[in-house]
């Protein structure tokens, strides 16, 4: 019985450690700004067939504007897989877009042109 209790304690500690280690900071080089009204601005750069950020995690507020500042060397398409979906066509040069997501959840923003995940929006 004592062995069972000891095993039990070991497992609790292991679990807590596992959970504690999990919360590492993300390193994605995202340039996002949040202003006092709750709006979020995300800078997205397309250059030489690459996109920055790529696979970033961005927290945004539900119902508040999400502004995209897109600088691209070639025109393309960006998809936001919320419900309803948002789709943006950008041109070579600078494009600014704005949209809102009402419903909390995790939403993928993908470059349709490059077939890559740009960011996961955590809508809270």
């Amino acid at each position: 019985m004592l062995r069972v209790v000891r095993l039990c304690c070991t497992l609790v500690v292991a679990l807590l450690l596992l959970a504690g280690c999990g919360g590492g900071a993300s390193k994605d080089g995202t340039s996002t700004k949040k202003d006092s009204s709750g709006a979020t601005t995300i800078d997205i750069t397309f250059k030489d067939g690459k996109v920055t950020p790529q696979g970033a995690k961005v927290e945004v507020q539900a119902g508040k504007p999400i502004k995209l500042h897109i600088v691209a060397d070639q025109p393309g398409e960006l998809h936001v897989h919320s419900s309803p979906e948002h789709e943006f066509e950008y041109k070579a040069g600078t494009t600014d877009e704005s949209f809102t997501i009402k419903q909390p959840g995790v939403v993928d923003m993908e470059s349709h042109t490059l077939d890559k995940l740009v960011a996961q929006l955590e809508v809270r």
Binding site: H81, S82, S83, G105, V106, V107, E122, R124
Partner: peptide, 9 residues
Amino acid sequence: GAKDLPIPL
């Protein structure tokens, strides 16, 4: 479309 938010730690 959207997936669930992660559950809190």
